[in-house]
Design a protein around this nucleic acid. Sequence first.
DNA 1: TAAGGCACCCTTACGGTGTAAGGGTCGAAT
DNA 2: ATTCGACCCTTACACCGTAAGGGTGCCTTA
Lengths: 214, 214
Amino acid sequence: MSSLSRAKPVLSLELIVTTAIRMADADGLDRLGMRRLGQELSVEAMSLYHHLRDKDALLDAMIDVVFIEIETPTAPSWRDGLRQRADSQRAALHRHRWALQVLESRSHPGLATLQHHDQVLGYLRAAGFGVRACGSVFSLVDAYVFGFLLTELQLPFDAESAPAIASELLGLTAQFPHFGEYLKEVILSGPYDYADEFHIGLEVVLDAAERLRS
Amino acid sequence: MSSLSRAKPVLSLELIVTTAIRMADADGLDRLGMRRLGQELSVEAMSLYHHLRDKDALLDAMIDVVFIEIETPTAPSWRDGLRQRADSQRAALHRHRWALQVLESRSHPGLATLQHHDQVLGYLRAAGFGVRACGSVFSLVDAYVFGFLLTELQLPFDAESAPAIASELLGLTAQFPHFGEYLKEVILSGPYDYADEFHIGLEVVLDAAERLRS
DNA sequence: TAAGGCACCCTTACGGTGTAAGGGTCGAAT
DNA sequence: ATTCGACCCTTACACCGTAAGGGTGCCTTA
């Protein structure tokens, strides 16, 4: 039909991936389709497949970018370093709410992911953790952070709307007494932010992690 | 076309949900479609919608059943109780590999879920935890368990095949030295089972929980 | 300068998905 | 006897990921 002449390629892997991330951030993961992504890039869907084998490959590339955004620990004290990384990790997963969902169905780590893990391992080794203990600490802290976000991200309320929603649930107090007690005494009495729990848990975990250095 | 006479309803919510769970266990979550589910029940897909508002409602019902399977803690020592629950939780999520994936996109807890949480809260209260501490401990342990399984379930290897796969990765040793060190000294030297990390981390978490009782 | 190959984007089509809309048939209640 | 509601069915729509194959224009090589 129409013949177009192109001096430079319109697409690139990087452009595709960053656009996909922006779309997923804005509209959620299930609104991210190949056609829509193509449309955003003024290109037909199938053209993307010249740069990607699969949609899975796209998702893999997307989480790899997320790992780039997670700060590597640098503080002299390993406690500070791990806390720094955990906060950064949490921030990244807040920016990209789809990431956790993608993470758990993907098992092909990208280069940035491997590099990140390698650097954290090196940091822990330098901080005096044994080889085995490194793995345990890593597994422990990562599990806590990911697990916490699993709950946090799916929570229907933020700090402001929490009391309002909790009030609604009060009707269940008869059926679930301890749940009701918690609602009344913690969430409804004074300011409540579930985010605080993150730091509470993280600190005690780090306290306990000290034991793994032997 | 053909007129069938039915004395009793063929379908029920419970039958649909248990069948869906069986299918998801066997074939994975993405092979669970309404048509296929209907076929398994000798019924057209749309008939299911007489018992379910949505596919989301189905997923909600499915995880609620999973929560029924998670044992409520009973041991006299709260440490034992929490460990017992964590193990049971892990077992359930192993039986139903799709559950974690569903969990993180759903925010409408079912009755069994609420009941389970209420009972655990009551258990912790009885064990001497303050109201606030209950929430922190709950958040902490749940986060750890879920987070650990997030990683564990996506791991491409089990205990036997781990060394074989790790050997392949050894090519990366030059690029990722600490990763390579870990592979060599931990995974390839002697028996390795990532499941062990679960218990190592869990004990640390329970240590941390102890600190929350003040 | 001519020819070949390759990078790049396009078109079409297939088999899947969830579900909105409406239809028919039956047993039970009025 | 009639109405009603529970229950399952049929059809159709707008999506989805992607296999297969096509065409155009630049770059390389002889």
